[in-house]
Structures are given as structure tokens and as C-alpha cells.
Amino acid sequence: MTAMDEWAVLFDLDGTLVDTAPIWRSAFVALIDARQPVPAGATDGLLGLTALEAITTIHRRLGWSGLDPVEDVAEVEAAVRQRYRDGATSWHTEGLHLIAALQADSAPVGLVTSSSRYVLDALLIHSAAPRFDVVVCGNDVKRTKPAPDPYLLAARRLGLPPARCAVVEDSPTGLASAVAAGCPVVLIGGHGQPGAVPVASLGRLTVTALRQLVSPAIHQASGDAARQPTES
């Protein structure tokens, strides 16, 4: 692969490559249940948020004052990390196959998540975990998804423009982040979302389909190079 043909794929983690939502929800419910009965909807809409953002939302919804959200984050993250270490979830087979196919095609693969490094490491130590060329966690940037910072940082670490980094996401928050960064996006299970190519499931994605997403940027780079003046 020449420099003009270089491209990459950046994957979201939660919900895209691993079904982590039930584990996080269980940890949030346990935190609430230790203090009061769990009201309906207390943990709704937290997918895609950092742990601190989710805990802050819970505090606001339940009217908790005088409590330190940072301490609650530590408790929840420790519970989630332990569940990961216990093997309570696993990497989606379709995702593992796609990543292996991309790497066989010499395409760099990155992971971009709002989870902290502390929590993520418990997933990456498992033997089934894929190898990533770059990993960006929530505590690597000042602004997390939906801000563009995580995907911009991943592209910069790979040495590629965002337009040549295809993104695989599953949430509106992640989609907004990738679009703002200038990355072409596939949205798993998405329908009619502006800025994204909808795909019913991860298993429907192929290396060819992802490469086609970044083809305009590759062709543009090749054209720009061809138009460069030569030395006389």
C-alpha cells in the first residue's frame, strides 16, 4: 500500500464491538439501589456518555446533592472493570472477523471510546481481544464524544487525514463526533441519520464497503499529487 492509498478504520467500542450496556446499567442500578428505590427511567439515555457524565446525569435526575460524583464514578468503574475481568461480556464475533480482514488487507485499525483507560484495560487483556494500532479513551481528550476531539486524535496518531479514516459507530453521540471530525461514518442499526451510511448489522460490513467510504479522499490525494509541479 502506497502513501496515497493509505486509509484506516476506527471502531467505537460500547455496543459496536462489545455489548457493554447491560454491565454499565447494572452498575448504575446498584449505585442507586444502595441509596433509594430505583425509579423508572433513572438510567435511560446514558449510552455513549463518559462515566462522569452519566453519574452527573443520575445525580441531577434524582436530586442528589452534597454527594461527590467522582467518588461514585470510582465505585461504578471498579464494578464494571471487575465484571469485564470476570468475563461477563465478550467481543462480537462479526467484529473480530472484520478487524482480522482489515488487518490482512494492511489497513490500520483503531479503537475510539468514551470509556476510561482503567476500565478498557480490563477488556483488552483478554486473549480474544483484537490488536489495535491506536486506542483513544475518554481520558485522552478534554472533550469526549459528541465533540470531534477523540476521532481527530485517533486520525492524528495514525498520521492520516480524518477523511481517510472510516468510522464504525452505533450511537447518535458517536456519529456526531465522527461527522464533526470529518470522518466518513457507518452507523450500525441506523436509519436516515444525516452524515452516515446505515448498515443493519456489523456482520454486513466488508473491507470493500469500508474502503469505498474513503475512496473519494484517496482519489483526491492522488489527484493532488499528480498536479504537483516537478523540478526542472
Rank of each mutant, 00 (worst) to 15 (best):
V112T: 03
H97C: 04
A88M: 12
Q103G: 01
A104C: 06
A122W: 10
T89K: 02
H97N: 14
H97P: 00
R81D: 11
R81L: 11
Y118M: 09
V112A: 04
A101K: 05
E94I: 03
R117C: 00
A104K: 13
D121V: 00
A104T: 10
T93C: 05
G110E: 02
V76T: 12
Y118N: 00
L96A: 05
A88D: 15
H92G: 00
L120K: 04
Y118W: 11
S116L: 08
V80S: 01
V76W: 07
R85Y: 08
Y84W: 15
H92I: 04
V76S: 04
S115Q: 02
R117I: 00
E75I: 11
G110S: 11
A107C: 14
V76E: 04
E94C: 10
L111A: 08
E77D: 15
T93Y: 09
L98I: 05
L123K: 06
D86C: 07
S106L: 12
S116N: 03
T93D: 15
R81N: 05
G110R: 04
V80P: 01
A88V: 07
E75T: 14
A78R: 15
V76K: 04
E94V: 01
S115A: 14
H97W: 08
W91V: 06
R85W: 11
L102S: 05
R81F: 01
A79T: 13
E75N: 09
A78N: 12
E75Q: 15
D86N: 13
S116H: 06
T89E: 11
Y84F: 15
L102Q: 06
L96M: 09
L96I: 11
S106P: 00
R81M: 07
A101Q: 13
L111S: 03
V112F: 05
W91L: 09
G95W: 06
L102A: 08
V80F: 09
P108N: 06
W91D: 10
I99K: 04
A104W: 09
S90R: 15
P108Q: 06
I99C: 04
A79V: 06
Y118G: 00
A101N: 05
T93I: 13
R81H: 14
A122D: 10
R85E: 13
L98M: 11
L98P: 07
T93N: 12
D105C: 10
G95F: 12
A100G: 06
G95K: 06
S90E: 15
H97K: 13
E94P: 03
Y84I: 02
Y84G: 00
S116M: 02
A100W: 08
Q103N: 09
A100V: 01
D105L: 08
